[in-house]
Design a protein around this nucleic acid. Structure first.
Lengths: 214, 214, 214, 214
DNA sequence: AATGAATGAGCCTTCATTCAT
DNA sequence: GATGAATGAAGGCTCATTCAT
């Protein structure tokens, strides 16, 4: 059985395990991440693991939860210090990509969750999307964003961030070799923001046929 | 060692194995899909598997390749019969979602590929994205789409399709229960197309730079 | 290292552990009885266990010893208040079955002892059998019991009590469901006593050698 | 999953495992009998075990069943060749003790079954006892055995055999050292038979008080 | 006196793969 | 071409015991 630590030492040990798990899951994936690897990375005895976690799934769920909390925190913090909606949006995405670069675990782990812990997977996406929805609703209220179903737009934004991040943060450029995390190139970021801004902007769309159609 | 089948009977056996593998991978994921399960589903002896495939990874790669070919085929076929770019785009996404609904394996398998076969993962995304890039370039040439980096836009489209598909095709509405594949609701599809059209349309965006757009 | 308690508090703690051990051993058996379970049942810290007992085996031996002492005490006390040998015998068996009903642990634990602690097993049986031997010898001296090897008879009595007790005290009637401890039914007890009395009674056996017994 | 062997080779392998299991269970007991020990004794790969048995419990149950069948077979065979009831009885017990001597596993395993597999435990005792009951009923019909509840008598006989066997077949004489299986000494056997004959013989018991009690 | 965090040997079990038939 | 018996590395997990507090 697992239990919450009852001493300072225990708290430290538990934290070490959680951190190690993030690293191990990120580098070899869920299935090749053995408890032994995790405890070795944490420099802790094998049995110690089971003092604080029920098993592999349990620590996986906690890692996902933890990463999710942190990425959302990073995003909202970044957005807070922005002057207007647009800046907030840029700051949010920047923070998202930066976090992705620093914690490739986020991506790699979440994509595994489909079969490992469907609940964790949904939790992750839903929470972030809910943040977008809030932002979009607020912006709609002030007219900064055109009338639209914020739900659909939010999932679209999530998707854009997800794949742009995958492509430019996690994948190395051309070779299929080991991915080296890094920032999204500036021009890609700007193009992406353009894409999003136009999608959300109020007013008539400008003639997809070159003409307003109506 | 594996080998290409040399008789009609062998060809049939190989095909049965491939089909069984798609089903098994889709329902239990890569790691819980044992060779025994696959051969049982294919109604074939265990040893027979190794007559046609080098191992588990090898058949996985082939399944991904196969699904990828089929989804692209479905998309291009659908687009072909469209009258103009916009219709082609709609038809392409429709086909993509329909395929997703009919072959949840695509999603489930691809998301596993991150650690199982990174090459297959990249192949899958890259090929689809390349299709988008072609389409965007052509549309830019005729002025139907505004000047932009088609690479970035293509990945954005891929992301939108991916997450909208995940959310509305694979997930059941609110409960965390077993997902029931189905079509994307009409209004979601329309909202999504609006989003995309505005993002791609030529002309000035409206009031996103703080200017009054009166 | 373990040690005898040096304070009243310590004595109490030790007793709590012993009582808890009896319960736990009886309900889940030796191997599934973990020290943690015992200390939890005793409401004592895990480490405390090793203050009073050298290990799992040690406390097991003590539990067996304790139960053995108590069952023999119950048997001799019951026999004491009897008027004659026959009554004493009846009272002894009655007490044995009653104890078995109240402490199923005795049975369950002893049967495990074969591999856990062969010494404890022998001690248990030998002590009880020695009691029988004493009784038989005394009865032989007065002619109440026929000449015979008291050793063999004593082990036979032990066996009779053991299996009759197992069958009618520990097992529920016909179903394989959870055993419900209870008393031996009267008629079974009487039949058993008949069996024993005839086996021990002095005089010629009747017609077992093929002679007509007139 | 386990399965019945489908080839001659498989049948041989399964039998080797069963024989090895009997030996291992008998020498170290259920809990210290690991699958590794069993497969090593059977000179078979570890994984092979799970081709034929679901797990440790499953093979344990089969070993008990097998031993039970064999001991009953030995007993009935021996009894068959006897001229009369008394001889049959003697032959049965002799066979029982001989089997015990040659297969100490029977004893040792059954005594463990209490917690390991209560069903197997009951099966074992019940089947043997049922044999006794049949015999007693038949003898009662011919008047060779006095009127009595054959159920109670049968369990008493079982108990006598069990403990006499334990004491003189399995235990070494005085030391607590490793038990060396051997036959029951003649005089013990004769005393035991005397005990039983008197218990079962028809006719008045001879004055437990030295007198018929009227 | 009492506690509980930490440890690691050892157990059961699965499964990809080989090979003799 | 097809089969399935055999293998053993590797993984998740338990638990008796030690030791610092």
């Amino acid at each position: 059985m697992s239990a919450a630590p009852r001493t300072a030492r225990g708290t430290r040990t538990r934290a070490k395990l959680l951190a190690a798990a993030e690293t191990v899951f990120a580098s070899v994936g869920y299935h090749d991440a053995s408890i032994v690897k995790i405890t070795e990375a944490a420099e802790v005895g094998l049995g110690t693991f089971y003092l604080y976690f029920q098993g592999k799934q349990a620590i996986f769920d906690e890692v996902v939860e933890d990463l999710n909390r942190r990425v959302r925190h990073a995003m909202t913090e970044a957005a807070k210090s922005a002057g207007n909606r647009l800046e907030a949006e840029r700051a949010g995405f920047k923070a998202f990509f930066r976090f992705t670069a620093q914690h490739p675990a986020l991506y790699r782990i979440v994509r595994q969750a489909e079969f490992v812990s469907p609940g964790a997977l949904r939790m992750h996406y839903t929470r972030i999307v809910n943040g977008y929805i809030e932002g979009l609703k607020a912006a709609q209220a002030t007219g900064e964003v055109r009338p639209m179903d914020p739900d659909v737009a939010a999932w679209a934004l999530m998707g854009i961030g997800e794949l742009i991040g995958m492509r430019w943060v996690l994948w190395e450029d051309d070779t299929g070799a080991q991915p080296v995390p890094r920032e999204v190139p500036d021009h890609v970021f700007e193009e992406m923001m353009q894409f999003i801004e136009r999608a959300l902007a109020p007013g008539q769309p400008h003639g997809t046929e070159g003409q307003p159609h109506g």
